[in-house]
């Protein structure tokens, strides 16, 4: 159980959000916007703790509340970052908000990635589309604690260069010699794309220096991506329980009450959103 003092929101009432101020926002793609927020009460900013892979319930009073993955890393405290795609009521209203506007936040919720287990392991991080949002948290955390991890592979696929989230940030990472950063786009309509053209699965043949027994993979992306990426990971002989996925569900509470995210006996908000491939095989309905 997470220590209460680290949680945003009211300690005695898990449904009451805490006010946070939008510090910065800019567009990542045509429909995804990046938000940095910090607690309105300055003293709270440094006490907030979360694990990569967890999410927060973000409220815009009068519109509603939605679960959003955290894109920032706890190793850089002070600001919390979200990637928001303009698809629903709440996200649409967030797109109308400006710097210094206040939003309500409560969380973090969910199990997150098992950071302690991952220590000393090789990592393969596979992201597609908006899947970059939660996995960027894990990637930055691993890079900030570089000595704790073995080889780190980042495989990031997008439809075209314009649709790649954090393309500048990740492109700069290609320079690093302690990270295998591999980016690909399905189609290069700009003619200027400096990295690979092809599906994200085409990047797997470049993975060489890993011992599958001590390698963990983390995947997040659109539903179609999972099947093909999973095949590649199994070809690498990575054990099923070491393949982790960050899943998505409709959620109304984030704290195991409203029932919307239930799959069999599991609450995605409490027992997830990070599940292993074994969980997915074991529980029909978890992905599809």
């Amino acid at each position: 159980m997470i220590d209460n003092s680290c949680i945003a929101g009211d300690r005695s009432n898990p449904f009451l959000p805490e006010m946070m101020r939008i510090v910065r926002r800019f567009d990542l793609t045509s429909d995804v916007r990046f938000f940095q927020v910090r607690p309105t009460e300055a003293s709270r900013a440094l006490t907030l703790y979360y694990k990569p892979g967890t999410f927060m319930m973000v409220s815009n009073p009068g519109v509603g509340e939605a679960p959003l993955s955290i894109s920032s890393t706890p190793s850089r405290p002070g600001l919390i970052e979200f990637c928001v795609r303009n698809v629903g009521h709440v996200t649409n209203s967030l797109f109308r908000m400006k710097e210094n506007d206040e939003i309500g936040i409560r969380g973090p919720y969910g199990n997150g990635f098992p950071i302690e287990t991952l220590k000393g392991r090789d990592l393969i991080i596979v992201m597609g589309g908006l899947g970059a949002a939660p996995l960027r948290s894990l990637l930055l955390y691993a890079l900030d604690n570089r000595d704790d991890f073995g080889e780190i592979y980042l495989l990031h696929g997008a439809k075209n260069p314009h649709e790649m989230l954090f393309r500048k940030e990740f492109y700069d990472m290609m320079e690093r010699d302690d990270l295998h950063c591999m980016l690909s786009v399905d189609k290069d309509d700009t003619g200027k794309w400096p990295a690979k053209v092809g599906l994200v699965t085409s990047l797997f043949k470049e993975i060489k220096h890993i011992d599958p027994k001590t390698t963990h993979a983390a995947i997040c992306g659109p539903p179609v991506m999972y099947r093909f990426v999973l095949q590649e990971l199994l070809k690498l002989k990575i054990p099923k329980h070491q393949i982790l996925m960050n899943l998505e569900r409709r959620m109304k509470c984030g704290v195991g009450k409203c029932g919307h995210c239930v799959v069999r006996e599991v609450y995605t908000c409490l027992d997830g959103p990070v599940f292993s491939y074994w969980d997915v095989l074991n529980m029909k309905e978890l992905i599809y």
Binding site: K257, C258, G259, V262
Partner: peptide, 25 residues
């Protein structure tokens, strides 16, 4: 025990409420 959550807002004034109502899977 499943429920849905809906916000209502008062016109003109910046105030409103967050309500919970029964839902069904």
């Amino acid at each position: 025990n499943c429920y849905d959550v809906k916000d209502t807002v008062e016109l003109r004034e910046c105030k409103g409420e967050r309500n919970r109502c029964w839902d069904s899977c």
